[in-house]
Write a protein that binds this DNA or RNA. Structure first.
Lengths: 334, 334
DNA sequence: ATGACGAATGGAAAGGTTTTCACATTGCAA
DNA sequence: TTGCAATGTGAAAACCTTTCCATTCGTCAT
């Protein structure tokens, strides 16, 4: 049915070994022979069977991407970046939408059946004693929130720095009554951002004020954010500026402000994180830290490629640069 | 390194053929032997090499999902559905984020190198003469907007019906001045929805009124939708109800109405399509047709499985059911 | 008692590569 | 002229399965 090395060898009048060499661009073959083989390949429409190749070479050209939830925009964007580089390097992308325990099962099965040579894990759960073990059999790169104490190679943004810069920016605008909406425990990035945020405020002598803070554990749930923001902004001693864990929460805050007759940014500055494409649906547009998800995906794929080809790689954590995109929701304190 | 059938055979004191039979649950092996083999498998931690298996059986257990843009929520949701079923059937998911010409190249390469046995194409471009050719070498299922005239097996919603029901719903609320925001040409679904919408209106004697219609070619771009909606709603003879191609456009219309002091739904009913999770970011919440993307993905995977295992499949088009989710943005005509 | 049959199992081929090793040819220096 | 290295090529093994075919053995009907 499909042409094989044997067919090509017969057609070109050479041995299968020579055909293989030509297909792999071996230098140890004469120009004339190579040309004849190539002609035969062309004529027969021969394409090497990847399965057989992988079996023989005992390696795989596919890599696994493990995603907790592909419908979350940040993951999808990262995936797009990974895909871009994978295509460039000639890898095939295996993807799996799995969470928790299932991640471990799938990953182990992939490693055992030798279905893939490497994997990129988006936002793997905390407390993963099993990761180093998997990493010994399979090249692994993490691409997600930074998990402190985890020594795996990872790509992430510096959430602590985002928090610090958020505080810095609002302080520079003259704000002193600065609030926070977001979680403090649900995930590592939330924790880090809040830590950085509070430590910068503390440097200017501003200590956490419970009346200015609203915690919501579901940091990306609009309705919950709306409820919490309403509560926070209804107080007589409401903050003059709010740093929000996500754009979703920031949008909720802006909407609430509009409903309560609080002018943004004159009476209230709102700062978010994400640069969500949907952020434009609320007016005024939300000032926000953008996260380079596509770039993170590309970097992760590059690192994995280096790791798999045995080249030198940076150890530990690789940081992707965020950027403050100033829009309409922030302004100087009155 | 890794245990093979030979190791297991030696350990269990049987032949490799028997080991293979046990691994494949063949009935032609005695219980005692099977037990011995299983014990050896357990002891050695043997896992069959998928590559070798695929090579021998000349088939693949992986299927390709081709996506134009994984960052679009509807595609991501479909992908999640596909993933769910693929896991259930034991398929490995290959994914590729490609558009236009690149789709054809990737698809052909996949078929030629026998990397996968089947593929699900999300929203493949129009005018694809090459599809039947690929389908003859690779099982194909389309999962996307319905392309009329294309005889491939496909899963899609009935966009014409959505259009009809939209008109029907607004007419039943007593509306007569009914507008439309969306594209008429950019994609098949936009065309179909508009056709169904207009034909239903026509049945009640309402003919298209250019003053009530706003066309925007980028049917999912908020800013453009905002501009267009503003233009449409600023007219003195503005419509009393609007059917929007997408929730994004509907949200823009609702926002514009709010800014212009037009009360929704008292003075203006707005109806969208999608049931976007972000639809909740605008008040009042938008009434909308939900599309079962996850379910579509699952159905597509099921159909592909049936097709690949040579079972009988429905021919042509499979329709997934949409549903009208009534929220706050629609109400009776004054 | 014999033949036929079915069940359980093993031997060996096949699937399409890559790669090692060996062989033959050439060119070049001694 | 001889020896040797470099170069180009082919034969065959190896990668790990599945599966066809053959063999053995026990059972049952004649």
């Amino acid at each position: 049915m499909m042409a094989t090395v044997f067919d090509v060898a017969k057609e070109a009048g050479v041995s299968i070994a020579t055909v293989s060499r030509v297909m792999n661009n071996s230098p140890r073959v004469s120009a004339a022979t190579a040309e004849a083989v190539r002609a035969a390949v062309e004529k027969l429409g021969y394409v090497p069977n990847q399965q057989a190749r992988n079996l023989r070479k005992n390696e795989s050209n596919s890599i696994l991407v493990m995603i907790p939830d592909v419908t979350k925009l940040s993951y999808a964007r990262t995936l797009a970046g990974i895909n871009e580089k994978a295509l460039e390097y000639g890898y095939t992308l295996l993807m799996n939408n799995a969470v928790g325990e299932e991640q471990e099962i799938v990953l182990n099965r992939m490693a055992e059946t030798q279905r893939c040579a490497g994997a990129i894990l988006l936002n793997v759960m905390l407390g993963d004693e099993w990761l180093p073990d998997v990493d010994s059999r399979l090249s692994l790169v993490l691409c997600s929130e930074y998990v402190s104490g985890c020594n795996m190679l990872s790509v992430s943004v510096d959430d602590r720095k985002i928090g610090r810069e958020a505080a810095d920016y609002l302080l520079k605008l003259g704000h002193r009554r600065i609030g926070y909406i977001g979680s403090c425990v649900s995930c590592s990035s939330a924790f880090e951002r809040r830590e950085g945020f509070l430590s910068r405020l503390s440097e200017d002598g501003i200590e956490p004020d419970v009346r200015l803070v609203a915690y919501t554990d579901v940091s990306t749930n609009y309705r919950e954010g709306y409820r919490v923001a309403r509560e926070l902004l209804s107080r007589p001693d409401r903050p003059g500026a709010i740093f929000c864990y996500s754009d979703i929460l920031a949008m909720a805050a802006v909407t609430v402000a509009g409903e309560l007759g609080i002018r943004v940014p004159e009476q209230l500055s709102v700062l978010g994180v994400d640069n969500n494409v949907y952020a434009e649906m609320v007016h005024p547009y939300v000032t926000s830290f953008s996260q380079p998800f596509e770039e993170m995906g590309r970097r992760a794929m590059e690192l994995l490629h280096l790791k798999m080809t045995g080249q030198t790689i940076p150890t530990g954590r690789v940081i992707a640069e965020h950027e403050l995109k100033i829009q309409e929701s922030t302004g100087p304190a009155l």
